[in-house]
């Protein structure tokens, strides 16, 4: 596993316009600059947000990598959920899923609570 290398590449992409341009122009060469497994290269190149999430990429890096690929917020969350179904629990890091009713159900509960105040 080389999660650190995956995250380092995403960090550079998120903050450096020149790395972004180079990634757009010659992606394989940029990927070759990092010590990555084939699974990680595949996940980055696709991009497979669900697999990157399960590999343990920090959400503060991953959500911007998703935005870079014009993946909308709700779609980003759904891709992570699909990743959990397809690849199993998060393998590293502190961004594991812990279970949640979802925003819509949560909003409805809060609205009901406000009305009974």
């Amino acid at each position: 596993m080389s999660l650190y290398q995956v995250q380092k590449l995403i960090y550079q992409l998120n903050r450096d316009p020149r790395t972004r341009q180079r990634y757009a122009d010659e992606r394989d060469a940029v990927l070759g600059d990092y010590d990555l497994t084939q699974e990680e290269i595949g996940a980055l190149a696709k991009p497979d947000i669900g697999l990157l999430y399960v590999l343990g990429v920090n959400g503060q890096l991953l959500m911007h990598f998703a935005a870079l690929h014009r993946i909308e917020w709700t779609d980003y969350l759904e891709r992570m959920r699909q990743g959990l179904k397809e690849y199993g629990p998060v393998r590293e890091g502190v961004y594991a899923a812990t279970g949640y009713e979802g925003v819509e159900a949560h909003d409805a509960r809060l609205k009901a609570e406000r009305e009974t105040r």
Binding site: G59, L77, M80, A97, G102, V103
Partner: peptide, 11 residues
């Protein structure tokens, strides 16, 4: 908060 995870919104 559990931001940028599938649990985003959990509080």
């Amino acid at each position: 908060h559990w931001p940028a995870t599938p649990d985003s919104g959990k509080i």
